[in-house]
Amino acid sequence: MFAKKPTGNRLKVQASPPRAAERATPRTRLGFSSWRDQHLYSLFSSLGRLLAKPWATALTALVMGLALALPLLFLILLDNARGLSGGWQDAREITVFLKPDAPVDAARQLAEALRKRSDVAAVKQITPEQGLEEFRQMSGFADALAVLQFNPLPQVLVVTPQELRGSDDPAVLAELRQQPSVDLVQYDAAWRRRLGAILGLSQRSVLVLAGLLAMATLLVVGNTVRMDIQSRAEEIAVMQLIGASPGFVRRPFLYTGIWYGLFSGAFALIVVFGVQWALSHPVNQLLESYDHRFALRGLEPLAALAVPVLSAVLGWLGAMLATARHLAEAHPD
C-alpha cells in the first residue's frame, strides 16, 4: 500500500516510509530512564516556572513557612519546659525534717529502719553540721551564717522511695508523718502532678495548633496550585489534545506543591534558628542563675531534617487535592 517512495528531497522526517502498523502509536520507551526523564522534566519545568515569578513564589513560601515555624517554636519551648521540669518530676525524694530536740541517734535509727524497707531505695542522712556546710557553700549565705550563734538546722533524712507505678503517694510517706520524732515531711507530689498536667495540656494544644496550621498550609498550596491551573488552562488543554496522560498533566503541579513545601520548610527552619539565636543570650543568662543545671535545647539535627521533608509532603498533598478537583473540572473529556 505504501510502495510509493518519498519523492521530495525536503522529506527528512524519516528516511523511509514505515509501515502503518509500526506507527499506530509512537514507540514509547518503557522503564526507568523514560520515567526518570519525564520526572526530571516536570521537576525542572515546575522549578523554572516558580523562579520565573520569584516574588509571588517567595510570598507564598513565606506564608507557609511562618505557619510551619509557629508550632515548631512552641514545640521547642515545650521541650525545654519539659527538660526543666524533668529534673523535678524525676525527683521522688521525701525530705524528712526531725524535731530540733531529737537526738542524733534517733535520726540514725530511723534511717536504719527505713533502709530495711523494701519500698525504700535509699536514705541519706544530713546532720545539722552538714546542712550548715551546704548553706555556706551557696553563695551569699556565708556572711549571714557567720552571725549565727548556734546551728538552727534540724536533722534531715532524704528518703528515696522505690519507683512508683501510677500517681499514688508512696506508703512510706504516711508512716513517716506518724513518727513521733518527725517534725515535717516534705513531698511535692500534688504540685508536680499539676505541672505534669499543665505540660500535657500544653503539648496537646501545640499539636492541635500544629494540625490547624498544617491545614492552613495545605489550603495555601492548594489555592496557589488552583490559580496556577486556571492560568494555564490553555496549556493543559493543548497537552491533553496531543495525548498527555492525566498523570503527565498533573505531575508539574505536584512538583510545584513539593517545591513550595521545600521552600517553606527551609524558611521555617531559618525562622526557628533565627529565634533560637535571638533568644540564646538572654536564655543563657537565665540559665546561669540555675548554675547551668539545664541547657537550652534547640531543634535536633534529625528533627530539622524532618521539617522540609514533612513540609514537602504537605505541599504535595495540597497540590494533589487541588489537581484532583480542578484538572477534572477544567477539561472534562
Binding site: 509512537p26 514509547t28 520507551r29 518503557l30 530512564s33 526523564d37 519525564q38 495525548g243 496522560s245
Partner: peptide
C-alpha cells in the same frame, strides 16, 4: 512536547 509525553530519550 509530544515526544516528552511519549517518554522519548533526550
Amino acid at each position: 512536547l509530544p515526544l516528552i509525553i511519549a517518554g522519548q530519550s533526550r
